[in-house]
């Protein structure tokens, strides 16, 4: 479960989030819609505990923002699959190595890793691309590779920050469908931020709107 209770956060320049209350149940698929600069990334950063609220509390599963110790943050992040607009794939590693990275962090052995990478790449439709380097892939393929990297550790939650921002409409639609499949088949909670209303309006999921750092409907 993801819960934000009366959360506020202000950047030095003044803007941020104000009095956010939001609850996302386990297995739910929720869209966060709002224009550029409305606070979508800030909200996701708070959930990923890259930043901490000035007031209020963020709860992600067993982790609370006001009590979590610094050394426990990696454990929280291992339970979350994060995908973003900029893919954060490593250029000097092939797809296999990129996708395998989270399992190395956890400490899996090589055999398990090979099997899991194949499975994850197959799930996102990138089987056979193991030896390709990120720069050899299209934007959609790179985003799917990011999704494979997020999925490989079987996260309970996927946080997607404008994952379709750099993709064409067809590829964007395919990615949303893929996230929906993961949500329905694995029961993974998905919270996806987007400014593309036309992409999400026809999907049958809860939509939360953010504007100037405030939620309009939740």
């Amino acid at each position: 479960m993801i819960q934000l209770k009366n959360v506020s956060y202000t950047y030095r320049k003044g803007f941020g989030l104000a009095n956010i209350d939001l609850k996302i149940n386990d297995g739910e698929f929720v869209f966060l819609i709002g224009p550029t600069g409305s606070g979508k990334t800030t909200l996701l950063s708070l959930m990923h505990m890259e930043i901490f609220p000035e007031s209020g509390k963020v709860t992600i599963g067993d982790f609370d923002s006001d009590t979590i110790k610094k050394r426990k943050i990696p454990a929280l992040r291992r339970s979350i699959g994060l995908i973003s607009q900029s893919y954060h794939l490593l250029d000097d590693r092939n797809l296999f190595e990129n996708v395998a990275l989270p399992l190395h962090v956890i400490g899996h052995n090589q055999n398990d890793i090979s099997e899991a990478v194949e499975e994850a790449l197959d799930e996102v439709g990138l089987s056979g691309f193991e030896d390709h380097y990120p720069q050899e892939l299209s934007g959609g393929e790179q985003q799917r590779a990011c999704l494979a990297r997020a999925l490989i550790k079987n996260p309970k939650i996927i946080l997607a920050d404008e994952p379709t921002g750099n993709l064409d409409p067809v590829t964007s639609f395919d990615l949303v469908k893929l996230l929906e499949e993961i949500n329905s088949e694995e029961g993974t909670t998905v919270f996806m931020a987007s400014h593309n209303y036309s992409l999400i309006k026809s999907r049958n999921h809860r939509i939360v709107e953010i504007h100037d750092g405030k939620l309009r409907s939740a």
């Binding site: 954060h88 490593l90 989270p102």
Partner: peptide
């Protein structure tokens, strides 16, 4: 920097 960011993102500890 990208590698460090990616590692932090996927939950790597500082030691790692």
């Amino acid at each position: 920097k990208d590698l460090i960011k990616a590692l932090k993102m996927i939950g790597a500890t500082h030691t790692f």
